[in-house]
Design a protein around this nucleic acid. Structure first.
Lengths: 202, 202
DNA sequence: GTCTATAGCCAGATAGAC
DNA sequence: GTCTATCTGGCTATAGAC
């Protein structure tokens, strides 16, 4: 440990995140990661043995950014309708700051389905159990319309995530600029809860 | 044209679709496509010059499967609420028969944003104009709740597409089998229109 | 810890026989 | 039209100097 740089590892990881998020595992090039990090390829291997390990670090990080936050809201001690509002606002905000994450995660799991089991360990995985039973209770009490709880949760997730996953597509079809699209996404923070709550309120 | 096989080209294209849909452009291997087609690599190049051309054929085909169908419903002469029902049913059915398509298209556009402009030519692109103005009219007439038309269209698309794009993820988290997931998707054909119509009906 | 140079492999593409 | 054999380039990974 002559120069013992904690900095270099961090710089590499950040560069790797950018490249992997943009191009995926198969499309990423170690050379590009080195270039973005301002170092040379050999150092990548010095810090992270090989491409697979480097990817592993990036992919694990991706889940760490997202899953605890989701579960925190899922498990919060909050009435259902408030929780829906909180979820839309906080999750959208999180994604606006990490807009590549949803597409990246979904792409890698689709290309390599066993990644789901490898990375979504029992401790670290989205756990909607509490939210699901909360929905069930509200339905049974007649406070919201009868609805299959899982369908509702998938709806909420889809409404939040889809505009990030399909961003380039939607932007192209509508002709929105990046700035306009940002505004569109921000407006969804109010729109989504209103939409969902209208849908389930008797 | 000694044996003039229209069959071989078709066989190659079908094999290429399977492999590209599953692994994406960067992850696909010409060798695997040849294997799946039951022929050898050289023949791939005989029919489709190179990997890029073969991909182009597959990607173009992907849009051709989906876009005309969407536009047909978007442009149909049908009251808004009926159109929403039709869309959820027909689009979900279409995707159940081509469940790799949404993830494939979105992945390639995200990895290579200029593909959007290259493949979504003015003639062949989703065109929600008529649906958007239909929504605007219903809002202005007070027959549905005030809602930003584009938000509603994105909601409808997201509700239909998300469970296909994130299928592996959702299946893993919920522990559903493929058969169970099929049933879940089928149920959404009734669930989605009910959900959306409840959300916008005063 | 960081670099240059290079080994080794793999995948896309071509040559040429049948 | 289809095959086998081979070339070529690019990319991951390592050796070794500083």
């Amino acid at each position: 440990m002559v120069k013992s740089d904690i900095g270099t590892e961090k710089v590499i990881l950040e560069a790797a995140k950018r490249v992997f998020h943009e191009r995926g595992l198969a499309g990423a090039r170690m050379q590009q990661i080195a270039d973005e990090a301002g170092i040379n390829k050999a150092l990548l291997h010095y810090y992270f043995r090989n491409k697979e390990q480097l990817f592993k670090a990036v992919f694990t990080d991706a889940f760490a950014q997202v899953i605890p936050q989701i579960n925190e809201i899922f498990d919060a001690d909050q009435p259902l309708l408030d929780k829906i509002r909180t979820f839309a606002v906080r999750y959208t905000t999180l994604l606006m700051e990490n807009h590549y994450l949803p597409g990246f995660i979904i792409q890698e799991i689709n290309n390599n389905p066993n990644f789901a089991a490898e990375y979504l360990t029992p401790e670290r995985r989205p756990n909607p159990q509490k939210l699901l039973s909360q929905i069930r209770e509200e339905v049974e009490a007649g406070r919201i319309r009868p609805v299959e709880p899982l369908q509702l949760v998938v709806n909420l997730l889809g409404l939040c995530l889809f505009p990030f996953i399909a961003a380039e597509m939607i932007r192209h079809v509508t002709g929105m600029s990046k700035a306009q699209y940002q505004r569109f996404l921000a407006e969804r923070q109010k729109h989504i809860p209103e939409f969902v709550i209208n849908a389930i309120t008797p």
